[in-house]
Amino acid sequence: MPQLDTSTWFITILSMFLSLFVLFQTKLSSFIYYSLPTPKLLSSKKLENPWNSKWTKIYLPLSLPLHS
Results as ranks from 00 to 15, higher is better:
Pro2Asp: 09
Pro2Leu: 10
Pro2Cys: 03
Gln3Pro: 11
Gln3Tyr: 08
Gln3Ala: 14
Gln3Phe: 10
Thr6Pro: 04
Thr6His: 10
Thr6Cys: 05
Ser7Asp: 01
Ser7Phe: 01
Ser7Met: 02
Thr8Arg: 12
Thr8Asn: 11
Trp9Ser: 01
Phe10Trp: 01
Phe10Glu: 08
Ile11Ala: 15
Thr12Asp: 08
Ile13Gly: 02
Ile13Arg: 04
Ile13Glu: 05
Ile13Asp: 02
Ser15Trp: 02
Met16Gly: 11
Met16Gln: 04
Met16Ile: 10
Met16Val: 07
Phe17Glu: 02
Phe17Gly: 09
Phe17Arg: 05
Phe17His: 06
Leu18Val: 10
Leu18Cys: 07
Leu18Ile: 12
Leu18Ala: 15
Leu20Phe: 14
Leu20Ala: 11
Phe21Gly: 15
Val22Lys: 05
Leu23Glu: 00
Phe24Cys: 10
Gln25Phe: 14
Gln25Met: 11
Gln25Pro: 02
Leu28Thr: 08
Leu28Lys: 09
Ser29Trp: 06
Ser29Met: 04
Ser29Leu: 09
Ile32Leu: 08
Tyr33Gln: 07
Tyr33Cys: 03
Tyr34Met: 06
Tyr34Pro: 04
Leu36Met: 08
Leu36Ser: 11
Thr38Arg: 09
Thr38Pro: 01
Thr38Trp: 00
Thr38His: 05
Thr38Cys: 02
Pro39Lys: 11
Pro39Asn: 08
Lys40His: 02
Leu42Thr: 08
Leu42Glu: 13
Ser44Asp: 04
Ser44Gln: 12
Lys45Val: 14
Lys46His: 05
Glu48Thr: 06
Glu48Lys: 10
Glu48Gly: 04
Asn49Ser: 06
Asn49Lys: 12
Trp51Leu: 09
Trp51Ile: 04
Asn52Cys: 02
Ser53Cys: 02
Ser53Asp: 06
Lys54Glu: 13
Lys54Gln: 13
Lys54Phe: 11
Thr56Gly: 00
Thr56Met: 04
Ile58Leu: 02
Tyr59His: 15
Tyr59Phe: 15
Tyr59Gln: 12
Tyr59Asn: 14
Tyr59Thr: 07
Tyr59Pro: 01
Leu60His: 13
Leu60Val: 04
Pro61Thr: 02
Pro61Arg: 03
Ser63Gln: 12
Leu64Trp: 01
Leu64Met: 10
Leu64Gln: 09
Pro65Trp: 00
Leu66His: 10
Leu66Ser: 11
His67Leu: 08
His67Ala: 01
Ser68Tyr: 11
